[in-house]
């Protein structure tokens, strides 16, 4: 078994999860507490990847990323980056595709905190930013952990979007899920099974860890 697709999968999932955490925190805060019109539109857009076939997102991203489209051309001009059939392209697509998996749990975590925690921080002279980082985030660790792992696992499980915009260039865009598909098409069931087993085992262990850690955190939070 060539480990390269597996390594690529975990590299993609790690980079996507870290970047998405940074992007999702302000969005989740904004959705949880912001007062603005058009919230429904923003929420619907973020939730689209939950219901849309991955090939639809992949198709539009493929169009947008291609050098003949103004966006793809602009990125290539300004950053010297070609997004279609490239690893950076996969990262951007994964970020869009996994956005709800990061944003929704964190938003729910923030909203589940008693309002009085935020208010107490304000009456103690702290501004919104300090309250967010020093009071709200430390108290929704389970939600953040859940969001991070769901995003990671969801990115590991990506297939349609990756195939549409990445193709299967070994070492660049050929992730494990695509490798499994290729091996099955070539009737190479043993190799497919090896990739599949590794994904299955790793994903199971990650989820197991998360749920045990979360249960422990939640038990600690119970009032005496």
């Amino acid at each position: 078994m060539n480990p390269q697709p597996l390594l690529l999968t975990f590299k993609l999932a790690s980079i996507t999860s870290v970047l998405l955490l940074v992007i999702a925190l302000p969005i989740a805060y904004w959705l949880a507490f912001g007062k603005f019109k058009g919230r429904g539109v923003v929420e619907a857009l973020i939730g689209m990847p939950l219901v849309l076939p991955p090939s639809v997102i992949g198709f539009y991203l493929l169009l947008a990323f291609s050098p003949s489209h103004w966006f793809g051309a602009w990125i290539e001009d300004v950053l010297g980056l070609r997004l279609v059939f490239s690893f950076p392209g996969l990262v951007i697509a994964s970020i869009l595709y996994s956005l709800p998996f990061m944003v929704y749990p964190i938003r729910a975590g923030l909203q589940s905190l008693p309002t009085s925690l935020r208010e107490a921080s304000y009456t103690l002279g702290k501004g919104e930013r300090e309250t967010f980082f020093k009071v709200l985030l430390p108290n929704c660790k389970p939600a953040i952990l859940t969001a991070f792992v769901l995003t990671f696992a969801h990115t590991v499980g990506e297939f349609g979007v990756v195939l549409m915009i990445g193709g299967n260039i070994p070492g660049v865009t050929k992730v494990a899920s695509v490798a499994i598909y290729n091996e099955v098409e070539a009737l190479n069931y043993t190799a497919a099974n090896q990739y599949a087993m590794v994904l299955f085992a790793v994903t199971f262990v990650i989820l197991l860890l998360v749920y045990s850690v979360n249960n422990r955190l939640l038990r600690v939070r119970q009032p005496a």
């Binding site: 009085s116 208010e119 304000y122 002279g125």
Partner: peptide
């Protein structure tokens, strides 16, 4: 804003920071 009023507030649920 609340931050600029020199007040102390004791909440009904105490609102202690659990962490």
């Amino acid at each position: 804003p609340a931050q600029a009023r020199n007040i102390g507030f004791v909440f009904q649920d105490y609102a202690l920071f659990p962490h």
